[in-house]
Design a protein around this nucleic acid. Structure first.
Lengths: 211, 211
DNA sequence: TGTACATCAGTGAACGCGCGTTCACTGATGTAC
DNA sequence: TGTACATCAGTGAACGCGCGTTCACTGATGTAC
C-alpha cells in the first residue's frame, strides 16, 4: 500500500488517543498492545513502527491526556461569568458525577497517577511537567495578590479535586460516592468564598500571561 | 509436618500483611502470587490452602491495610495536645515526606484506590466500608456542631490528603513534590483555624462514641 | 510401650494462556528510465 | 507512454516468558489399637 501524506502522523495520533482512553478506563497494565491496536483499527505488529516500546506510548498518552485536560480547564476558566470566581467553575465541572462516571474522557491524574508513580520514569517526567502547566492555569485564575500564594492555593485545590474523584470512583456505594463529590465541592467553594475579599482587592492589577 | 495450634492462622496473617505491603509498593497486578509467597517465606503452591483466589487476598489485604491505618489515625487523634485540633495532627502526619516516601507502610487509599475502583467488587466493598469507618474517626475528632457537617468536613479533608499524597508521589521533581505536600497541608490547617471558633462553641457537649 | 495409620500445611512440577516484542512478508502507489 | 523497481505503513505468525491456578506428593506429629 502507499498512503497519502500525513497518513502515518494521523495513525500515530489515533493510537495515542485510543491508548489514553483505554489506559484511563482499564489501567495501563491491563491494556495489551494487541487490544489497544485493535481498538484503533489496526493489527498489533504495526505498533513498533510508531513507538519504541509500550512505555514510550504510555508517556505520549499521558502527555496528550493532560494537554487535553489543560485546554478544557482553560475553557472552563474562560466560561466564568463576570464576578464569578473561575476556580469555582473548574471545581463544579471537575467534581461532577459526569466526570466521575466518564473515566475514559476524564482527567488522567486520578486515573493514572498511582500507576505512573511506581514506574516508567519518562511518563513521570511528562506528568510532572503537565501537572505544573495545569497548576499554572489554575493559579492564574485564582484569587490572592501574591503569586506564590496563588500557586500554593491552586496546588491545594487540585489535590482535593484529584483525591475526591479517586475516592468517589473507588467507593461502591453510589450515595456515598455522590456525598464525597458534594462534600469536597462545598468545602472548596466555601473556601473560595472566604478569599473573595482578597480577590476583589487584587482586581485590575497587571495581568501576567493574558494574550 | 504437623504444626502447632494457630500456626495456619499465623501464616494467613503473614501472607495478608506481606501482600498489603507488596501491593502498595508495586501495585496489585505487578505482584505475582509466587513473588508474594516467596516474600512471606513460602512456596507459591500453598497459597490456595489460604485463599480461593488472588482477588480474595486483595480484598483481605485492603481491609487489613485500612484497619491498620484507622488505628493509626485514632492514635494521632488521641495524641493531640490540649487545645490543639486533632485533625491538625492527622493532617501533619499524613502529609509528611515520611508518609510520601514510605508507600509500603502508607495509606492504601492513594496507593490502591485507582486499581481497586476498576475491578474486584469484593475489594471495592471492603474499601467502601473501611473508608466510611476512617471518615467516622475523623468526623468524631473534627470541629462543627452539626454531625452531618462534621462528616462532610472529614470527607473533604480526606480527599485532599489522598490527592496530595498521590500527586506528590507521581511528581518527579522532589522540590515540587514537597511543595504539593506543603501547600495542601497549609490550606487544610488554615481552613481548620478558621473553624476553630465553632469548635470552641461545641466544647463539652455530649460525646457520641467515646469509650 | 510399640506399631500402623490419619492428618494437613506446605512443596514444586505442570497446565493453558496472554503478554511485549520481532520479523519476514504484502501490495498500492511513486519514481526511474 | 509503458515497464521495472523502490517505498514503507501495516499484517500476522512466532519467540521466550511469567502469570494464576491445579494437583500429586511430603513428612512430623497425633491418634487408635
Amino acid at each position: 500500500l502507499r498512503y497519502p501524506a500525513g497518513h502515518k502522523a494521523q495513525t500515530f495520533r489515533r493510537i495515542v488517543e485510543t491508548a489514553c482512553r483505554c489506559f484511563r478506563r482499564q489501567g495501563i497494565n491491563e491494556v495489551s498492545v494487541a487490544e489497544l491496536m485493535a481498538s484503533a483499527g489496526l493489527s498489533h505488529g504495526g505498533f513498533y513502527a510508531h513507538f519504541a516500546s509500550k512505555d514510550a506510548l504510555v508517556a505520549a498518552a499521558v502527555g496528550h491526556g493532560l494537554d487535553v485536560k489543560r485546554h478544557l480547564v482553560e475553557d472552563w476558566v474562560a466560561s466564568a461569568e463576570r464576578g464569578e470566581n473561575p476556580i469555582a467553575v473548574v471545581v463544579r465541572n471537575y467534581l461532577s458525577t459526569q466526570h466521575r462516571d466518564n473515566i475514559g474522557d476524564g482527567c488522567p491524574l486520578p486515573a493514572l497517577s498511582a500507576e505512573i508513580a511506581r514506574g516508567n520514569p519518562v511518563a513521570r517526567t511528562v506528568l510532572t511537567e503537565k501537572l505544573m502547566a495545569l497548576v499554572a492555569v489554575l493559579a492564574e485564575a485564582g484569587p490572592f495578590d501574591d503569586s506564590a500564594q496563588r500557586e500554593a492555593s491552586a496546588i491545594a485545590v487540585l489535590s482535593t479535586l484529584v483525591g475526591a474523584i479517586l475516592l468517589a470512583r473507588a467507593t461502591n456505594d453510589s450515595r456515598y460516592s455522590d456525598e464525597i463529590l458534594r462534600a469536597s465541592r462545598e468545602m472548596l467553594l466555601k473556601s473560595l468564598r472566604s478569599t473573595a475579599v482578597s480577590k476583589r482587592r487584587r482586581a485590575k492589577k497587571q495581568p501576567q500571561l493574558s494574550g
